[in-house]
Simulated scan of single mutants.
Amino acid sequence: MHLLLPIVLTFLAGIGVAAQAPTNGMLAKVSGSTLLAALISFGVGTAAIAIAWAANDRTSPAVLRDAPAWAWLGGIYGAIYVATAAYAAPRLGVATMLMIAIAGQMAAAVVIDHFGLFGIRAEPVSLSRIAGLVLVIAGVVLVRR
């Protein structure tokens, strides 16, 4: 039962990711610029997070001074994803674009887990994890047909 909240929140976030690609794709279509669409998306998202932080948290940014350099790169990954999704979703379709992204995420996740990268507890590669990854890749092929 203790996992229900993160499962529900993750499911809802997934719905948002599916809606984000065509939403940003429309901004790109109207503006003629994928990068402007991504910038607007991040600007609106940054404003929303800033409001939520100011209203609920207010942890001092000074606590981040000891964070490792690689910990600052998350925004770059997100920016690349948002810009790529705004470009790819109208061309591939949302389902295909998301399945390909999920396949990439799962492949990277298996490696990250196996080696315990980025401070994550190591989870060795297993036959069932590889089978799951193969099924995701098969899902890409099936969704694309």
Score class of each variant (00 low, 15 high):
Gln20Leu: 04
Pro90Ile: 03
Val17Tyr: 08
Ala85Asp: 05
Ala83Gly: 15
Ala95Ser: 14
Gly93Ala: 08
Leu142Pro: 01
Thr10Cys: 12
Pro22Glu: 02
Ala89Asn: 01
Asn24Gln: 01
Val17Trp: 14
Ser60Val: 07
Pro124Ile: 00
Leu12Gly: 02
Phe11Trp: 12
Ile15Leu: 14
Ile40Tyr: 00
Ser31Glu: 03
Ala83His: 06
Gly78Lys: 08
Ile15Pro: 07
Leu36Lys: 08
Ala50Asp: 11
Val134Phe: 10
Ala95Met: 05
Trp72Pro: 05
Asp66Met: 10
Ala109Trp: 10
Ala52Lys: 03
Ala103Trp: 03
Ala101Asn: 13
Leu135Asn: 09
Asp57Thr: 07
Ala55Met: 15
Met97Asn: 03
Ala138Pro: 06
Thr23Trp: 06
Met99Leu: 13
Ala47Tyr: 07
Met97Gln: 06
Thr34Glu: 15
Ile80His: 04
Val141Thr: 12
Val140Leu: 03
Thr46Met: 13
Ala55His: 01
Asp57Met: 13
Ala79Phe: 14
Thr59Gln: 02
Leu142Lys: 12
Pro68Gly: 06
Ile112Asp: 04
Ala18Met: 08
Pro124Gln: 11
Ile137Cys: 10
Leu135Glu: 05
Val143Asp: 07
Ala109Pro: 06
Phe11Gly: 11
Leu133Ala: 03
Ala62Met: 12
Gly104Asn: 03
Pro124Gly: 07
Gly116Glu: 04
Pro68Thr: 10
Leu39Thr: 11
Gly132Ser: 12
Leu27Phe: 14
Ile80Ser: 11
Leu5Met: 13
Val125Cys: 04
Ala48Ser: 15
Gly25Lys: 01
Lys29Ala: 13
Ile40Thr: 10
Gly43Lys: 05
Thr59Gly: 04
Leu39Val: 12
Ala21Ile: 12
Gly132His: 05
Leu27Gln: 05
Ala89Cys: 00
Gly16Ser: 09
Leu27Ala: 07
Ala28Pro: 08
Val44Ser: 08
Ala62Lys: 14
Thr96Gln: 11
Leu5Asp: 01
Ala122Asp: 05
Ala67Gln: 15
Arg65Gln: 13
Ala52Leu: 14
Gly45His: 04
Asp66Trp: 05
Val125Gln: 08
Ser31Ala: 05
Met26Val: 14
Leu142Tyr: 12
Leu35Tyr: 15
Phe115Pro: 07
Val8Gln: 13
Leu39Ala: 15
